[in-house]
């Protein structure tokens, strides 16, 4: 009865095959859950902003809560000059959070457990931050690799470390989210398998573990979205304020 716990991460085509110059661009289950998550976010915003009042209703309050949370986070990590980047960070946070949460539903697909998705998002942030850094500071952005006050004989080593650290940002950012989602969902699947295989007599223990793990996964889902958004803000801060 027990199935492969990695089977849940398989991507398969939904609907007709779509290809361009031999590259498969078909709509998949991954795309479907991205779409569902986006629609949920849009519904969340429409419900919150359709009838705005000075004294907020339930949905407006939730909208404002998320809005203020992200706004405070950006102000604390980057400062007030990051307001133009607010919609991007808000989109990133809500998108990842919704993908993580939707992935916890039974029979749902966890988009953020796909390394290509997290890596692509991390690369977009990395490239975007680098462009912003060069646009704001010009060639002076390269100072990020040369911290001040370093002894001259250590300078080449430090610069090399800084470059490696900078280039590994998209990897660490993407692998962190991917690995957390992968591990969490695999564990849930394994414990779920135990519940089924041990039956009604012995399945209570893994079931209780499953309940506890689900609670933990909800926390991890939120935490990983937050960490992704905070790290994006920190990278943006390096580009905008050049503290190095």
């Amino acid at each position: 009865m027990a199935t492969n716990p990695m089977q849940q991460f398989e991507v398969h085509r939904i609907g007709p095959s779509l290809s361009f110059k031999g590259v498969d661009l078909s709509f998949t289950n991954s795309s479907l859950f991205m779409l569902i998550s986006s629609i949920l976010i849009i519904i969340f915003f429409i419900a919150g902003t359709s009838r705005v009042n000075i004294v907020p209703g339930k949905f407006q309050l939730l909208n404002e809560l998320v809005f203020n949370f992200i706004s405070k986070m950006i102000n604390e990590t980057v400062g007030p000059n990051a307001r133009p980047y607010f919609p991007f960070i808000l989109t990133i946070f809500l998108f990842i959070l919704t993908l993580n949460m939707v992935g916890l539903l039974p029979y749902a697909f966890t988009v953020t457990s796909q390394i290509i998705i997290t890596f692509f998002l991390a690369v977009v942030i990395f490239v975007g931050v680098t462009i912003v850094g060069f646009a704001k500071n010009g060639i002076g952005f390269l100072k990020i690799f040369a911290p001040s006050g370093v002894p001259i004989f250590l300078f080449p080593i430090i610069v090399a470390i800084e470059i490696i650290s900078f280039l590994s940002r998209p990897v660490s950012l993407s692998v962190r989210l991917f690995a957390n989602m992968l591990a969490g969902h695999t564990m849930l699947k394994v414990f779920g398998g135990f519940v089924v295989s041990l039956g009604i007599v012995g399945g209570w223990l893994p079931l209780s573990f499953s309940v506890a793990l689900t609670a933990l996964e909800i926390l991890v889902a939120f935490l990983q979205a937050y960490v992704f958004a905070v790290l994006s803000c920190i990278y943006l801060n390096d580009a905008l304020n050049m503290h190095h």
Partner: peptide, 28 residues
């Protein structure tokens, strides 16, 4: 690990880009 199967990587990147850009545009 089915995640390492590159068969639908480009498709996922394409749909992620489309959906994310639309979502970002609406929010912004």
């Amino acid at each position: 690990m089915p995640q390492l199967n590159p068969e639908f990587w480009l498709s996922q990147i394409l749909w992620l880009t489309i959906i994310f850009v639309i979502l970002y545009f609406l929010i912004q």
